[in-house]
């Protein structure tokens, strides 16, 4: 049984190891390992397309993480006081948005936004003052961020709500009995108890958005995120440079995950 477990762990980690190993390839061909070097990291980092894609991914992931942790936490706090039909409705929507495959979110957002833009753009052009160029709405940062946030917001709600459920309610009651204002109770009692879940949610949202390919593929418009860049590079053929970029992407997620795990651990140790 132990041997089986080791085999499965190898199955999970050997492919990742291969990517990392081949990213240090000194040779020019992706599939032949000829000595080790970090030259491809230099190549990747000095490639302006990679730089742009990286910055785009960071901006998107950071905005998604901020938005979803704020909105998700707010919703989780409110939902515990909601009962009846509304509660059922929200629970249903949360589960749907977590479970629906990314491709459906991507397509639906694309189609809906293009329809709205096709309707709004002529309208904007007609009311815009003569002589100046009217703004043209198009797919871009906002559409990617909005589409990613649908999933990650629900994820934060689930995480924070689980934390609220495990919270010591007597502290809140004590705080209210001692005539603390609701705001003060929230700030001094509730928030310190739920912040590990919020931080973990923030980091997981960031990771999800940073790694997502399929939603961005549909709604990013002219913007290229790092996964989209990797995807189109692979279509042209695998090079050691792609391996180097892939390794960096893996490293970013791993660092964030370890941090998230740290906060979730802090939660259980309390």
């Amino acid at each position: 049984m132990r041997i089986y477990a080791i085999a499965v762990f190898l199955f999970l980690y050997v492919p990742i190891g291969i990517i990392v190993l081949f990213s240090f390839n000194a040779g020019r061909h992706a599939s032949e390992l000829r000595g080790l070097s970090v030259q491809w990291y230099g190549k990747a980092l000095s490639n302006p397309f990679v730089g742009d894609a990286f910055v785009t991914s960071l901006i998107v992931a950071f905005s998604v993480a901020i938005l979803s942790s704020l909105m998700g936490t707010a919703a989780a706090l409110a939902l515990q006081r909601l009962k009846g039909t509304m509660r059922v409705l929200f629970d249903g929507l949360i589960y749907i948005s977590v479970m629906i495959p990314g491709i459906v979110i991507g397509i639906a957002t694309l189609v809906a936004l293009v329809t709205v833009f096709d309707f709004l753009n002529p309208l904007l052009a007609s009311i815009w003052p003569e002589g100046t160029k009217p703004p043209k709405l198009h797919m871009g940062y906002v559409s990617v961020i909005a589409a990613h946030t649908l999933f990650t917001m629900s994820l934060v709600i689930i995480l924070v709500r689980a934390r609220i459920a495990g919270m010591d309610r007597s502290l809140i009651e004590a705080s209210m009995d001692l005539y603390a204002t609701p705001w003060r109770t929230f700030y001094q009692v509730t928030l310190p108890q739920i912040y590990p879940a919020i931080l973990a949610g923030f980091l997981l949202s960031f990771t999800f958005s940073f790694d997502d390919f399929i939603i961005s593929f549909f709604v990013a418009g002219a913007n290229t995120t790092l996964p989209i860049y990797i995807f189109s590079s692979i279509r042209r053929g695998i090079t050691p440079e792609v391996n180097a970029i892939g390794t960096m992407v893996l490293a970013v997620s791993l660092i964030l995950l370890m941090t998230a795990q740290f906060f979730l651990r802090a939660r259980t140790n309390r």
């Binding site: 492919p15 990742i16 599939s31 999800f208 790694d211 990797i230 695998i238 992407v249 997620s253």
Partner: peptide
């Protein structure tokens, strides 16, 4: 250790198999 791979890029992990 089991869950970590799920939260890293499926794109990068899948293309490792093109290699293998």
């Amino acid at each position: 250790l089991v869950i970590v791979p799920f939260w890293t890029s499926l794109l990068v992990r899948t293309y490792a198999w093109i290699f293998i």
